[in-house]
Computed example of a mutant assay.
Amino acid sequence: MTVPFAVTREAGNDGVARLRITGRVDNNVCDTLTALMINAIEEDDVQELEVDLTDAQFLSIAGLRCLLDARSTALRRGRGFRLKNPTALVTQVLHVTGFAELLDPANPA
């Protein structure tokens, strides 16, 4: 069963923008996801973007590219970026492609 794509923003005032992704992260959602992540990064009070992948069912190469684009934007603006709670499939994609360092060191999966 495929779960519809959704992004949920967790409220907080600790300088961390937390986005939780549900469903498939692929070419069909990349533009939307990239825009949401960059909007969060560009908020004045945000020092770090945390992307929670607990409910991400799939990560395509296009999906990885949009995560890398958001990371690049965050770093250019002097902000942090990390992925948290990736599923086994997402973790495998990150390791195979050499981007496992994007994972939160506290939750290396």
Results as ranks from 00 to 15, higher is better:
residue 62 A to I: 09
residue 3 V to M: 10
residue 46 V to C: 12
residue 81 F to K: 00
residue 49 L to P: 06
residue 22 T to A: 03
residue 20 R to C: 02
residue 84 K to F: 05
residue 88 A to I: 14
residue 93 V to S: 02
residue 54 T to Q: 08
residue 61 I to G: 03
residue 42 E to W: 13
residue 36 L to Q: 08
residue 69 D to P: 00
residue 108 P to W: 01
residue 9 R to Y: 13
residue 97 T to V: 00
residue 24 R to Y: 09
residue 89 L to I: 11
residue 74 A to W: 08
residue 25 V to T: 08
residue 68 L to D: 03
residue 12 G to A: 11
residue 20 R to W: 05
residue 26 D to T: 13
residue 37 M to A: 02
residue 64 L to M: 13
residue 88 A to N: 07
residue 65 R to F: 14
residue 49 L to E: 07
residue 38 I to W: 00
residue 106 A to Y: 08
residue 14 D to C: 07
residue 36 L to G: 01
residue 71 R to S: 05
residue 64 L to K: 04
residue 21 I to C: 01
residue 83 L to K: 01
residue 21 I to T: 00
residue 64 L to I: 15
residue 1 M to C: 12
residue 51 V to R: 00
residue 92 Q to P: 07
residue 88 A to W: 11
residue 84 K to W: 06
residue 78 G to H: 01
residue 4 P to R: 06
residue 81 F to S: 08
residue 55 D to H: 12
residue 6 A to N: 15
residue 11 A to E: 15
residue 22 T to W: 11
residue 98 G to A: 10
residue 101 E to W: 13
residue 18 R to G: 04
residue 12 G to Y: 11
residue 99 F to D: 00
residue 94 L to Q: 02
residue 37 M to T: 03
residue 85 N to Y: 02
residue 5 F to L: 01
residue 52 D to V: 12
residue 79 R to D: 12
residue 88 A to K: 14
residue 102 L to N: 02
residue 86 P to M: 05
residue 15 G to V: 03
residue 55 D to I: 01
residue 29 V to I: 11
residue 86 P to H: 01
residue 48 E to I: 09
residue 82 R to K: 15
residue 5 F to P: 04
residue 22 T to E: 15
residue 86 P to Y: 10
residue 56 A to C: 14
residue 15 G to S: 14
residue 77 R to W: 14
residue 58 F to S: 04
residue 70 A to Q: 08
residue 5 F to T: 04
residue 95 H to Y: 09
residue 1 M to T: 11
residue 19 L to N: 00
residue 32 T to I: 13
residue 29 V to N: 02
residue 86 P to Q: 05
residue 20 R to N: 06
residue 36 L to Y: 00
residue 75 L to H: 12
residue 79 R to H: 15
residue 65 R to I: 06
residue 66 C to Q: 04
residue 107 N to K: 04
residue 7 V to R: 11
residue 47 Q to G: 15
residue 66 C to K: 08
residue 30 C to Q: 07
residue 32 T to L: 12
residue 49 L to S: 03
residue 54 T to F: 07
residue 19 L to F: 09
residue 104 D to S: 07
residue 41 I to Y: 12
residue 8 T to E: 14
residue 31 D to P: 06
residue 56 A to N: 09
residue 78 G to A: 10
residue 32 T to C: 10
residue 73 T to F: 07
residue 94 L to D: 04
residue 63 G to E: 05
residue 101 E to C: 01
residue 54 T to E: 00
residue 51 V to N: 03
residue 102 L to H: 07
residue 47 Q to L: 06
residue 42 E to H: 14
residue 3 V to F: 11
residue 34 T to M: 06
residue 105 P to H: 03
residue 11 A to L: 13
residue 83 L to N: 09
residue 17 A to W: 05
residue 38 I to V: 15
residue 96 V to P: 03
residue 33 L to Q: 09
residue 109 A to Y: 10
residue 39 N to P: 02
residue 67 L to H: 06
residue 62 A to F: 12
residue 24 R to L: 04
residue 37 M to S: 05
residue 34 T to N: 07
residue 54 T to N: 11
residue 28 N to I: 02
residue 107 N to V: 13
residue 92 Q to T: 14
residue 59 L to W: 08
residue 84 K to G: 01
residue 90 V to M: 02
residue 107 N to S: 07
residue 82 R to D: 01
